[in-house]
Structure formats: C-alpha cells, structure tokens
Design a protein around this nucleic acid. Sequence first.
DNA 1: ACATAATTTATAACCATTCTAAACTAGAAG
DNA 2: CTTCTAGTTTAGAATGGTTATAAATTATGT
Lengths: 138, 138
Amino acid sequence: MSNNLEFITKLRASGLRPTKQRISICEVLFSPAETFHFSINELVKIIERKTNHKISLATIYNTIHAFKKKGYLKEIAINSDQSYFDTNTTDHHHFYDEQKKELIDIHNSEIGPIKINKTIPGKKIKSVEVLVKVETDY
Amino acid sequence: MSNNLEFITKLRASGLRPTKQRISICEVLFSPAETFHFSINELVKIIERKTNHKISLATIYNTIHAFKKKGYLKEIAINSDQSYFDTNTTDHHHFYDEQKKELIDIHNSEIGPIKINKTIPGKKIKSVEVLVKVETDY
DNA sequence: ACATAATTTATAACCATTCTAAACTAGAAG
DNA sequence: CTTCTAGTTTAGAATGGTTATAAATTATGT
C-alpha cells in the first residue's frame, strides 16, 4: 500500500534488490514526516507492530547496515549499551537525557559555529558532532 | 614501591577500601604524567604487563565502575563496540580516528565557545561534548 | 520458465559486560 | 593479637547485543 515505488526505485538505484523485507523497513524508516532515532531493538518492535510478515533479526541487522553504508542512515555515538541510528543523515547534533534514554535533535542552525583551534598533522576532519547531555529537573 | 600512600588515602577518603587490586589499578591509571584513554580490554593488558599479581576481570570492571561513580574517571561516548574511559575528568573534547581507533584530546581552550540556541523545557544541560571524527590522509 | 547470484532465515557463535555465590580480606571491636 | 563482619575479589556462568554460517528462498536477466 502507498507509493512503495519510490522505495523500490531508490533501492534498485543503490544496487539493493527491492525485497519485501527491505521495502517494509523503508516504510517504517522513511515514511514518517519526521526523522527519528532508534536502536535495533526498538526498530524490531516497530516492525512487529506495523508489518504483517515476520522479518528475521538477521535481516534487520543486514538491512540497517546496508542502509548505513549507502548513507541513508547514520549511527550516533551515545553510549556503549547499544547502537543508535538516525534517519537524519545531515550534519546535526543531539541532546541526550541519560535517565530517560531520550534523544532530541539539535539542528545545525540551532548551534553556533564550532571553531576547533587544533589540527593533527596527517589527519583531516570528517565530521563534528556535539552531544549535549541533559537531565530532567525535579 | 612509590607513594601508594596517596592512593590509599584517597581510596579510604572515598569510602573504598584500599585493596591490593585497587591500588595497582590506581598506579596504572593515575601515576602517568599524562591523562589517557582506555577500553577495559586495553586496561587489562596494561595491568597484566605492569602488575605481578593477577587481577580478575570482574574486579577490573568493578573498580572502574566504582572510580567512575566517584568521579575519578569518565566514560566517553564514541561508538558502541566498547566502553572507553578517560582519566581526564575535566570538560574537554576529542578527535577520533575511526580507522585507527585513536582518541586525541581537545582541551577546552582549543575549541571556541559552543552556543546552543535551543532549550528543552524541564531539562537542564549537564555537559557538552564535541566529537570530531577524523581520517588519516593518504 | 530457468539459471544464478543476491537475499533471507534460523540458529549458532561471539564478545563485552554483568551476575552469582563462594572464598578471602581490611578494619573494627574486644 | 584473635575474632567478627561487612566489603571485596574471584572464577565461572549468564546475559544481551551483534555477527557469522550455511541452507532455503527469491529477484531478475536471459
């Protein structure tokens, strides 16, 4: 249902066969109006809810990695408990509430320019990510 | 050998009994002139090299967590493979070379002020960490 | 339709980390 | 200097997220 055609085309264009499973995962990840953050665990639950046919855990891992490699997802470094992924692949930053394990985007426009006055010979910068840890007041 | 007295005193003051194992771990972590970054795995190897008596893996985990809780170490969010710890508990930032899995400090003075033009009602900022991913030229 | 290479799948394997429960030890009290 | 006790260490088992394996299935070009 809906315009899976878009996903099918995109998958094929990326050299990924548009399988039933991948299309379902695309629907979950890329249909929502807003970008979102997820752990594999959370994704599995969402897929179970939204999808009729069961998708193997291995396939979910494979697909997420394939999408990450193609640049459709990026991994976020938060803690070492689990991997978190983000459907927003543009440069941006995050608030993170450790107690609630809640991640909130900070768009690039919402943060001042970050000036790094240090260079390392032979290395060049690939990305700059800011993680703002927050706690809930009480 | 050397002034373990300092460590013993500090441990006791923190409500941690100064055991042989904890003192050895203190020596490894806090004797070096420079602060450093480590994964538990790396720490285990260093301890094996520098210490005569064997320290159980469980003890190393316990101790590192105790030290973290007391604020003598902080955990760094880099990736989800492993936990990384830092003996530098002051606010500062990092370069990270993903290929070489190499971490390099960026002192607070080496980075411009970070202005966050976004607030979340009910939450207050605990820390701001910048992770600059770099790659080695070739 | 057929062939073939890509993909999915269940399950096992892996590895960092945590748990468990028994043995040991630091420090306090007698 | 012994005894007691709570704190600590320990080996090994258990856990949980992730990856590997190898057989079954499927997409797609011919």
